[in-house]
Amino acid sequence: MNIHIPTPLRTYTAGAETVSVPGATVAEVFSNLTTEYPELKQQLFSNDGKLRSFVNVYLNDEDLRYLPEKEATTVAQADELTIIPSIAGGADRMAECVCCSCCSLL
């Protein structure tokens, strides 16, 4: 099945936007993906083997986290996986900034 790789991870797929790996379940596909592109493993998974919390995975239009069988979900050749790291942030108005001087400007 095809897996869409986000820009920052294409360094580890020789620049490929989309890679194709076999597998009957999402877990198998991930296992084959990280066998073929070993450097992706550390990017996607923490040391305990769980998907990193900021890594979102979509099976077609469904968030993997909300699929009842999660990684055990069976996949067909025509399905597509999209890996998309999260985007968030904020001004931390109440917290102390790590930048050197901006808090003093408030």
């Binding site: 986000p6 820009t7 920052p8 360094t11 900021f54 890594v55 790291p85 999260s86 985007i87 968030a88 942030g89 904020g90 001004a91 931390d92 108005r93 917290a95 102390e96 900034c97 790590v98 930048c99 901006c102 400007l105 408030l106």
Partner: peptide, 20 residues
């Protein structure tokens, strides 16, 4: 909004797109 154009601790913690 009403805050300097500098990244915050949250911005950094939540930034995961290397090279972006």
């Amino acid at each position: 909004p009403d805050h300097p154009a500098q990244w915050s601790a949250t911005d950094f913690a939540e930034a995961h797109w290397m090279g972006c």
